[in-house]
Design a protein around this nucleic acid. Structure first.
Lengths: 106, 106
DNA sequence: TATACACGCAACCGATCGGTTGCGCTATCT
DNA sequence: AGATAGCGCAACCGATCGGTTGCGTGTATA
């Protein structure tokens, strides 16, 4: 079982949950009301998000408030930055090529 | 079958392929040499990436060069930005709350 | 022209996914 | 105390995933 942020955000419902929790902490029932899915289905998504270390829970009586661990989202950005760095490098190499072509022209 | 960028980058091998292609276009065989996976497995990942509209192919004799459609990656960033916007809003609301508390103190 | 290579495609496999149903536990309400 | 509400958990389901094996086809090479 792979459990990382990329897996976490692969599902549209889970992305929606992340968005909901970005606004405010919520109980599973409150989340489920925002979708057409059942409470159970939402609960399973929550479980995965917890396993991905993206959610924290706080029991409050018979309810559970789930809070987003926003810092986890940085991992996506970190990966994107690595990607962009590679792309930039590529362009620099292209620059080098163009420069060399210019030199040859002279 | 869901086919979007989030699905595309959910798999670690596919993320690696994206990174490879970020540096330079490649044939399936060239990609496979970078992993411990078989050519066929890589080929299946390529297929998914193509279906996600993340790769372009150009036949060159009996080889196929796959090129990354880097612009597709923006969709991830776009989603991340939406997320950040929601978080920022949340903090602004928190600011409002703190402000109001201050007012009351007076 | 015969052979080797690069690749896609289809069939198959066990594992996981996303969902539903049903149960049980604990907390709140009457 | 009994009924109800909020939730997790386990079992089950069909669909998809990631991988392997085998085959077909078109292109280069000897």
């Amino acid at each position: 079982m792979r459990r990382d942020i990329f897996q976490a955000i692969a599902d549209p419902t889970r992305r929606a949950i992340v968005m909901l929790l970005a606004v405010q902490a919520m109980t599973p029932n409150a989340m489920a009301e925002h979708f057409y899915t059942s409470r159970q289905a939402v609960s399973k998504h929550i479980r995965i998000l917890v396993e991905c270390d993206l959610l924290e829970q706080e029991q409050q009586g018979r309810e559970i408030q789930y809070t987003l661990r926003a810092s986890k989202m940085n991992e996506i950005e970190k990966w994107l930055d690595q990607f962009k760095a590679l792309m930039a490098k590529r362009f620099n190499q292209l620059d080098d090529v163009l420069k060399r072509l210019k030199e040859k022209k002279k």
